[in-house]
């Protein structure tokens, strides 16, 4: 394979159909941006779920120094006897399947995992944490039963339905995820059609060359190579553009504008990009090469 010939052919091919190639790159980029955005939103929900999400439904928080005088049932910091009584009461409550005690130290550790990088996470201390029981229910909808059972006991600062807290936000993110996936699917189809058309035009405008190549016995690989590489380059550029857009959104929109105003939410870091960027590049290349192969099978017959 003569590299120079191949590079020259790619250059010619891309320039010949410049407008079509731009259309391919843009639609590929939009498709991949949506795909990447969907994946990032998935990461975002994970980042917000914290340690206990999905493992338990209800948290029974017990009084710490901050609560004394503020919460109705907190006359003093929780004592061992009070917490034992709460535990026993929980144990006898219907639907309670499992009770996991969490100390202030553990609570602090999990809190820092979830919010460490936010303004809240940086000011919190272990003393701000509440000793608590994490309660798993056999029927997740029976929060009220636990609330009624232990909500008024001495030493209980609050009973919180953890699920309920994040649910509306997650529902919103999931809708956004599905919308992104939908747009990605439509754009993928569009990109595929555009590549199909571009390669077809390209094959048509080069039919003289390819006809002679076939006659003198050039291999199929050699004949198709320039077209495939043309597609691969366009796909790669689309993937790079999509990555650039996502990185810009993260850097300027999330970190620059949204995060400073929403100090209680842990936003995704840069780590997901380590796999999402290569993924977008690879998907971009594979998609356009697949579309090219499909087209060439039809329009560049042996």
């Amino acid at each position: 394979m003569r590299i120079q010939y191949v590079l020259q052919e790619i250059g010619h091919g891309l320039r010949r159909n410049l407008t079509m190639v731009i259309a391919v790159i843009v639609s590929t980029a939009v498709a991949l941006t949506m795909l990447g955005a969907g994946l990032l939103m998935l990461e975002q929900t994970k980042a917000m779920q914290g340690y206990w999400y999905g493992k338990v439904e209800v948290a029974v928080y017990m009084c710490n120094t901050n609560d004394v005088g503020h919460a109705t049932n907190c006359t003093s910091v929780i004592t061992a006897a009070e917490s034992a009584a709460i535990y026993t009461k929980l144990h006898g409550t219907p639907y309670v399947e499992n009770i996991i005690p969490e100390s202030q130290a553990q609570a602090y550790q999990h809190y820092e995992q979830a919010y460490g990088s936010t303004a809240l996470g940086q000011t919190a201390t272990e003393q701000d944490m509440e000793q608590n029981f994490r309660v798993k229910l056999s029927d997740p909808s029976k929060f009220q039963v636990v609330q009624d059972s232990v909500g008024n006991m001495v030493g209980v600062a609050s009973v919180v339905d953890e699920q309920q807290l994040l649910q509306p936000l997650f529902t919103f993110i999931h809708i956004a995820e599905y919308s992104a996936a939908g747009v990605a699917a439509v754009m993928l189809v569009l990109a595929f059609l555009l590549i199909f058309n571009t390669v077809r035009l390209s094959a048509f405008s080069r039919r003289r060359e390819t006809g002679i190549m076939r006659l003198v016995g050039a291999s199929n690989f050699y004949i198709q190579m320039p077209f495939l590489l043309e597609g691969a380059v366009a796909g790669l550029l689309g993937g790079a553009l999509a990555s650039g857009v996502l990185i810009a959104i993260k850097a300027f929109f999330i970190d620059g504008i949204v995060a400073p105003h929403l100090s209680s939410i842990q936003f995704i870091g840069w780590r997901p990009f380590v796999f999402i960027v290569p993924l977008l590049l690879v998907v971009g290349i594979m998609m356009s090469v697949a579309a090219s192969v499909f087209t060439l099978r039809k329009y560049l017959r042996v």
């Binding site: 394979m1 003569r2 010939y5 003289r208 060359e209 002679i212 190549m213 003198v216 016995g217 050039a218 291999s219 050699y222 004949i223």
Partner: peptide, 19 residues
């Protein structure tokens, strides 16, 4: 013949493309 290639290039093309 390929109109944008010279005589030499047209003939050489047949050998180039078979490597």
């Amino acid at each position: 013949l390929l109109p944008n290639k010279t005589v030499f290039q047209n003939v050489a093309f047949a050998l180039e493309v078979i490597g």
